[in-house]
Design a protein around this nucleic acid. Structure first.
Lengths: 224, 224
DNA sequence: ACCTGAACACCGTTCAAGT
DNA sequence: ACCTGAACACCGTTCAAGT
């Protein structure tokens, strides 16, 4: 643990100043897909210990690699977090698509999607926060992130197009509708993982179900 | 700017080691309500420069006070952020109450509240993120924070009770309804300040209006 | 009681050097 | 090409001392 400890540094002043080279080399290099390994280690740390524990040192240590090895694969910590967020959107996308298709699409499908969305957030709260947190820096203009986010939203749009075709949703701009639906599930998810709901003795998943039901009524075609 | 700069520190070693006392004292102490001043300086920095710029040093400097003076008034940085969040909930509470009452309550009132909520988030994005961000630490169990958050939610509950009484909302558990409505506006607000909506060329406030309208339909009593 | 300045134990990032 | 270890410029926090 080489840290800036002035006390011990001063002691060292007695011995000749250490030159900037020739330190014992590590047993062996990592080699292999270090980028992927770093990404997965970051996700693991996040899931187990939260965002504060996610330091470049901790990630490096877990792989037996120096903390600056990361800079060969990511431009900085923000880039690592951006990659973590992209990976999160891919996982969310898969979860939504699976829920939608396994439930046979339609009304049941969108209910399943709503539950799957909130479940994902509850099961990976830190990962979810990194995806949407925005308190910390994260390169919002990164193409990979934008693409992964858009792909996840696309499942929603697809389901709404089907609901409209089946006469279960108002025939209006589907992207506005999708943004609205997304906002609802996102809002429920955020309140759920912040504990704002549990603190009132309410249940997050129950709220998710309620929300999707009211949502269906809300976007249903007007009764003539 | 006294920072741990080893280079200049080593130069100083030529001169006798500085003892741990007797430094030129500051012109004068702050005196007055330093706690309040610190809180307001923190809010100002947040609004103007974002969360990364909010360091104890920057806040202290702005008031001409040492960085550790803060510890007389807050147990740590998390406590300062918690106070900032509480203040945010009070401001939000006022904005919602004003919108609700000025619009004459009822349907128009809740539409005004929805817009006021999203407007607050758009106008104070960093303050809003601290209130809900949850990426950074913030003492969620703080009584003041809990109370301020509950008070803001209370306006919503109140409006829903009225809507129910007027036959404009389903007669069901009002707290579940309130959580749902809160999730919706919160979701819209988060997507809005993250730029997720603007990037699609859509308008955040328009989405807020759309959302509240669909919300009204969603929670309206079932047609017999 | 309130505040200061130095010390301390962490950070992320850079860079000359090693393989 | 890939990685290392030391240096560096910041952080938040603690504490003996000053008023």
């Amino acid at each position: 643990m080489a840290l800036v400890n002035i006390g011990s540094y001063i002691e060292d002043m007695a011995t000749p100043r250490p030159s900037r080279l020739a330190r014992k080399p590590r047993a062996q290099y990592h080699h292999g897909d270090l980028r992927r390994a770093l990404l997965q280690a970051a996700v693991r740390t996040l899931q187990k210990q939260g965002l504060d524990a996610l330091t470049l040192r901790s990630v490096g240590d877990e792989l037996g690699v120096s903390r600056s090895a990361l800079y060969r694969h990511f431009s900085d910590k923000a880039a690592l977090l951006t990659a973590v967020a992209s990976e999160g959107f891919r996982l969310l996308h898969d979860a939504l698509r699976t829920a939608w298709e396994h439930a046979g699409k339609g009304r049941a499908g969108s209910l399943a999607m709503g539950e799957a969305y909130v479940s994902f957030a509850l099961e990976h709260p830190w990962h979810y926060r990194v995806m949407f947190g925005s308190g910390f820096d994260l390169d919002a203009s990164d193409p990979e992130l934008r693409q992964a986010g858009a792909a996840a939203l696309e499942v929603l749009v697809e389901s709404l197009v089907e609901l409209q075709a089946a006469g279960l949703a108002r025939q209006e701009d589907v992207r506005t509708q999708a943004n609205f639906v997304w906002a609802v599930v996102h809002g429920v998810a955020m309140l759920a993982i912040d504990g704002s709901i549990e603190h009132q003795g309410a249940d997050a998943k129950a709220l998710a179900r309620y929300a999707v039901e009211r949502l269906h009524t809300g976007i249903a075609p007007a009764v003539p």
